[in-house]
Design a binder for these strands. Sequence first.
DNA 1: ACATTAGGGTAG
DNA 2: CATCGCTACCCTAATGT
Length: 1171
Amino acid sequence: MDLKLSQKQKHSESQLTQSYWPMDRSQDQLEGDKERQEGSDDDDNDYDDDDDEKKEEDEEEYGDDGVRVDVKSSQVDSMGTDDDGRVTSLGLGRRLIGRKRDNDVEMGVDDNDNEEDEVEEESLPVLLRQPSSRPSEFLVGPNEQSEKEALSQMHSQSQILSQSQDWGSLNDREFISLVNQLSQEKSLLNKSNLSYVNNNNNNNNNNTTNVTLPRENNTFLKSINEESDAPDDIDNSRINRSLLHDLNVVGNEEDDDDDEVVDIPNSSLKQPQLQDQEAEEDKYENPFSSLLPSSLDSEQGGGGAKEAFEFGDYATYFQNKQAGQQEQDDIYVDFVKKALQSKTHPPIFKGCIIYVNGKTNPDISQLHKLIILHGGKFLHYLGSKGAATHIVADNLTPRKKLEFRNYKVVKASWIVESIKAGKLLFWSDFTLIQVDYGQVKLNFKPAAVDEVVEKTDDAAMNPGSVDNAGGKLTGDEDNNDEFNEISQLSHIIEPGDELHATDEDVKQFPAQMDARHPDFLKTFFAKSRLHHLSSWKMDLRSDFLSKAVEVLKKRRMSNPSSNVLSQLGQRVIMHIDFDCFFATVSALKNTPPIDINKVPVCVTNGGKSADVASCNYVARSMGCKNGMWLGKARANCPNLVCLKYYFDDYERISKMFYDILLSYELDSILPVSIDEALIDCTTLCQTLDPLELMKEIKKKVLEKTQCSVSCGCGSNVLLAKLALRHAKPDGVYKVDQENVLQFLNDVSFRSLPGIGPQICNKLAIEFPNNGDTDITVGQIRTLKLDALISLFGQKTGKTIFDYARGKDDTSIDILSNPENFSRKSVSIDVNWGIRFDEPLEVEAFLGRMAKELNQRLIRARCVGSSIVLKLAIRHPSAPIEPEKYLGMGHCEFVSKSSKLGINTRELGLISTELKHTWRVLGVKTKDLRGVSVTMNKLVSEDQQVKEDVNQMKLPFKVNGKGIAVKISPSKKNKVDQPKSKPIAITDIPSRRVSPRKNVMQDAPILRQLKVSPRKTNSKSPVKTTPVSLPTKDEIEWDVFYELPIEIQEELKREMARRNMLSSPKKKNGPRYRHDIQNLMQSPTKKKKRKVTQITSQDNGLSFQGISVRHFDKILSKLEQWIDFSIVEDGPNEIDLNLFYDFLLRLNEIKGPLRVFGVIEKMENRLHLWNC
DNA sequence: ACATTAGGGTAG
DNA sequence: CATCGCTACCCTAATGT
Ligand SMILES: Nc1ccn([C@H]2C[C@H](O)[C@@H](COP(=O)(O)OP(=O)(O)OP(=O)(O)O)O2)c(=O)n1
């Protein structure tokens, strides 16, 4: 994983786009060099921790190839001695790593692959690394030779295991039964000395196909073991054949006609295959297409006739379509076979069902042909339940990485190389997805060792973080024993002494004010300049803008002549901006006031890695910049004076500024930010020289605010902006129409609006001779439109092309198209202070985010129907703690949007959806570094109320003519509706509307909640299993934990993929309790106590002034509320939110049972009304 | 073909 | 102690329908 980054870096720096601050460094380089000459080289390090990290990674990984791996292996080694169930496993894990490196050298893979391979080595799915799954005979002999041997065999085993790891095609019930069998058999195996691999394998096959393969694989492995004497020269073909065999059994369900291949004895296959291999190799010297008959290409586009059936719904249609294509494939293969009787394509991919994702090196159509010609199945659409055995991809977005976690994802070269080799190569040598090594460490003791290493790693890079890492260490030890969780769960239901003890911790908690603290958001936003900046802007864009529209309209009414004038072709646009706004105001506010023309000042929170929000021009001349870290700014400018933020004053002064602007007879005014506005003063400038106007404005503002502004003027927004830049500081400038091109010639490309560091970098490649000097707009003008479009895409290319010619048709006319300026989304981003240990903490936080979003939506007077959760995840190469305190460091981003089905801003709905999405994304809690939540598809509240009278109804349905959750049919098209998906496991009851369904079908809450979260059994009946184990609905956890930890992890991942509970419920509880626990538990959740620690204050919880101690009273109050609400035609939104809050806290403090008590009571009440 | 989604980039 | 790395909008590429 580390290597991956480095590799990316090596190849193209600009590809590193997933970092939150990807371009800080280049920005520094680009601008820093221009604005100041002094030492920007080594300052790089301070400027952004990410660069630091990358550098270090570089050194570590490239300086000494083996460093990291060795560290890992020694970790693993020391883990290995812990307890015997895991000894061999871990010990072998180390050896596997060692072998792999040898292998790389010997196999002489090409450079790229080499790097990746090594990276991916660690990332073999755990089950495949699963060394304890080796039959004990593989462990013979401590000497090197046999060790190598063993490893080779392991590899092959892995292959088999992985191939048969066809979880995806099992339904949940089958899967559970598989897990249980696995567990059961393992405990037998402990005594009988058999390997897991075989058993797993068999079980799997049994489950899938009802075919038993009692000992075949065993025999196979055994024979390998006996025969193989050249360890690094594994008899691949044999393995392969066995693999084929194995696969064929799995694949039998779908095609039975190739049995002969399977039945060919291993040895007899060997020769023909080698021949094939040679033949193939020849062909592969040529482009891939040469492999394929020429008719193929035409064939491809051809037969649509089959699809001309009438299909029912879309899903069926696609199923049918899929089937149709499969047939086409078969026909095609037959055709080719007949056409090329001389050459046969070895059925390398027999049993493989392969899906190709995204761009690949041989492109998808080539791969398609290659796959089907070589006996594989090509999957045109990846269904939700993965039928695919492999996914081929050369790149994966972070999102896809998560999605495909539990698939075998291989690079396209796997296909190509396998064909070249004439046999199926180990997919794991071509794997693309890395499994985070850290995942294993969560659950067992040796993890602590791992942590320690990470800590020292971290500390080495960044001594300041030792304490934090240390803290984490102890935290982790807490986590070690999975069984702890069970006892701890009981605390949720019966808070005991321990809870009280931790309550005291709560009070001391602010020791570290991170996102776990209930008040975090409040304090964070209060101090965040960027938050202020954003919210000021939105305020201006709503409040001020509507006021301005009103004022301007009124004026226009009274002075109709301006209407005519405003039609004039040539407009006069001005851009006005305070000079270093924060710095100026803060200097003014400071006691005693500071002369910003002499003293270098900046506004910052203080500290080494704190951002400089704004610095004055004195400081800028010494190399400081807005957004730079204070540490670096200080280094550039040692006598820099730091000033505090004065948010209120910024706001106050801004208001004066805008009042002044609005006092002019403007055609339009558009707020750009707190300190910056665009005005259209075409009419005014018919009678007034723009320069005079600018000077006047400048003077007025200075008088009123004692702060200087600069003004730029031009015929469009672009020119006004560039003129402003030219005018700064403390000046005015007008771009004359005649001089536009000349003016532009020397403007730097980077200073064009919308041109940031990334685009700039991209373009720098086009001007390699430019060296360090900035590319100018004049240079851009020499580029052809096509060139720009191919570089930047259709729109961006055209825009740049026009910009280079001074053309810009951006409208700031707020009067004629006000809708252009209405907001289209509301979002909350928090990428600082995000540190969680437990998924429950995240969910609590998401609840608070939901609340905040709800309030912002209320403030914005709108509702929405689509919500996006975006998570920042610590990049695998980034240290646990970044340089910036509680910062996010270098991150990967993953986002997922979901449709709410109705226009809403209801807290419960939002919260539930977010939590659900969070679970679906399955991000490792401890690596979470940022959370962002966006409501999209906004509709104004008024509009919504008009269109849907029932908007604010109770969150539960009442039968008959009573209250109903309803979707207004009139706006079906506008509302984003979820695809039919299973009922979410929600911890807090909330309606989930199935939009297309009749309202009447909505289950009452309680029933919804009691329903099994996934309708696991509805579709396919459970297949009988040869092993006479009782089929159960749940995992038998006791036995499950007998499995080696890696297998547990692997299975857990699969459970997670299925959204199944991946940890045991409370022991010995009555049945219904299990269900509730089940529902309340996220699949990834471990335990609950910590959240309780943080958020609970038992005594404090009350509802409507009634303490929880008088629970009955609360219940009757709620009943009253229902009665009232029904009479009043629905509850009030505020009440709903209060109630929701209460439920949340009740859940946190008293546990889910209480919540269900409440719900039951309420539902009973509702039933009364029904009758 | 067109709509939707995920990701990325930018500005202040 | 540190530190408060937000947020709306646009665009593109890849997918889904
Ligand atoms: N990375 C940034 C950029 C800006 N700001 C804040 C501080 C600035 O004072 C204000 C306005 O931003 P400007 O880009 O207008 O920069 P200044 O006003 O500071 O300087 P000038 O406009 O003179 O270049 O926004 C910030 O906090 N962080």
